[in-house]
């Protein structure tokens, strides 16, 4: 039973990661793309927590680092999106065509 929960959680984590990846590739709104990236990071966190059940606390330490780094990344990312909004009056990645995409 134990193992089944772990396996199921790993599959859920892989699925969430895939949803995040697909979202980054498909969605055109910069904020939603960014949210999908965060979803990917948190999917990995779920995997790490599952691994830490049998493999030791190192994984949980890494989860804390990931959360801190994700917070820093969010601060920078949202600042960049605000800067973009000032120039373009929008956050749709299709509109940014000054540089060839």
């Amino acid at each position: 039973m134990n193992l089944d929960i772990e396996l199921a959680s790993l599959i859920l984590s892989a699925f969430l990661f895939a949803v995040g990846t697909a979202g980054v590739l498909v969605r055109r709104n910069a904020i939603i793309v960014f949210m999908c990236v965060e979803l990917m990071l948190n999917a990995v966190n779920l995997s790490l927590i599952v691994f830490s059940r049998s493999l030791g606390l190192e994984a949980q330490v890494l989860v804390f680092f990931v959360m801190a780094v994700a917070a820093a990344e969010a601060a920078v990312g949202l600042a960049i999106i605000i800067a973009i909004f000032r120039h373009y009056e929008g956050v749709d990645v299709d509109r940014f065509n000054l540089l060839r995409w």
Binding site: V33, E58, L62, E73, I84, V93
Partner: peptide, 27 residues
């Protein structure tokens, strides 16, 4: 600003892959 957004989104995307790689190696 546009370059920063593109670099940021792609870089953060890549970090996600890197982190998943780390997690699977750990696993």
């Amino acid at each position: 600003a546009e370059a920063a957004l593109k670099y940021f989104l792609m870089g953060a995307f890549a970090s996600g892959f890197l982190l998943y790689g780390i997690a699977l190696i750990f696993g």
